[in-house]
């Protein structure tokens, strides 16, 4: 592993802090002593090859899976927090999310407000209620009255992201939010996640597009074989060769005149 790129977690005021998070299923270590800290306002990209443990890490933090180790959010041990309070702290968007009943899009997004009130269906609250605002931010307000399971895959993905954002949780965990989106909506979704983080919250997003991860994330966390292989800025990780080692591909970055990543060419390793 390239130690140069690794930033030690646990410094400063962390919104989310995982220490020695491990998961073992049927004698197999899915996660091994993962440490991760996420600061206020940070957008973290979690990348790694298939089967690296990214989704498992997110599911543990979301409360959908048992784990060993410790997990704290806003300084509170997550195991000691009631499920309702945890829902206000951590929002979760799973990959390939489904909508099982023919509900209206607006009602699906409003499910994000569920932990905060009776059925949490803010009705007729005008333009400034959180659900309306978030639907506008995610560009799905025009779908409001559609039946959710008649949407296209990309539209559904954006509606489900809006649902996760509607929780207004301190930490938003998004598992592959860009899958099934066209290029324009990939960009607007990354901007929406960036905006979410900038309002005093933080976002951890699993991404497969390394270029997007480097362009938008404050920090990139690389996972491999159930461990965190490295953490750092995208540029540092590119330069030290960790990304090429982990993904076993050749990466050729092109930077613009401001030194920002303009594009990233992928190739097979010789």
């Amino acid at each position: 592993m390239k130690e140069a790129a690794i930033v030690q977690p646990g410094s400063g005021h962390d919104l989310l802090s995982c220490r020695d998070l491990s998961v073992r299923i049927d004698g197999q270590d899915i996660l091994q002593r993962c440490c991760l800290s996420v600061g206020n306002g940070e957008l973290i990209a979690l990348i790694g090859p298939n089967g690296a443990g990214k989704t498992t890490l997110l599911r543990c933090v979301a409360g959908a899976m048992d784990y060993s180790g410790s997990l704290s959010c806003s300084g509170k041990d997550i195991r000691a927090v009631s499920p309702g309070d945890r829902a206000a702290l951590i929002g979760y968007l799973p990959q390939n999310g489904q909508i099982h009943w023919p509900m209206r899009v607006r009602d699906v997004v409003a499910l994000g407000r569920l932990p905060f009130g009776k059925h949490a269906q803010p009705r007729n609250l005008g333009k400034d209620d959180p659900v309306t605002r978030i639907m506008r931010d995610c560009g799905v307000d025009h779908l409001s009255r559609r039946i959710a399971n008649t949407l296209s895959g990309g539209e559904r993905a954006r509606v489900l992201l809006a649902r996760a954002m509607a929780t207004q949780a301190s930490v938003l965990l998004a598992d592959e939010p860009l899958a099934s989106l066209d290029p324009r909506h990939q960009l607007s979704t990354m901007e929406a996640l960036r905006h979410y983080a900038s309002t005093g919250r933080s976002v951890v997003a699993v991404l497969h597009d390394i270029g997007m991860a480097i362009r938008f994330a404050d920090r990139v966390v690389v996972m491999q074989n159930g461990r965190i292989a490295g953490t750092g800025s995208g540029k540092d990780l590119l330069q030290c060769g960790l990304l090429e080692d982990v993904f076993r591909v050749r990466l050729e970055p092109f930077f613009d005149e401001n030194g920002r990543l303009a594009s990233l060419a992928l190739g097979n390793r010789s």
């Binding site: 499920p83 309070d85 829902a87 489904q98 699906v108 994000g112 932990p115 009776k118 059925h119 649902r163």
Partner: peptide, 21 residues
């Protein structure tokens, strides 16, 4: 249980994350 069923519309993982046991 209505509230829990409502959350389950989006699957078990989301229901857990919305504070439903």
């Amino acid at each position: 249980c209505g509230r829990g069923y409502q959350a389950l519309t989006l699957g078990e993982d989301v229901a857990w994350s919305l504070g439903v046991n």
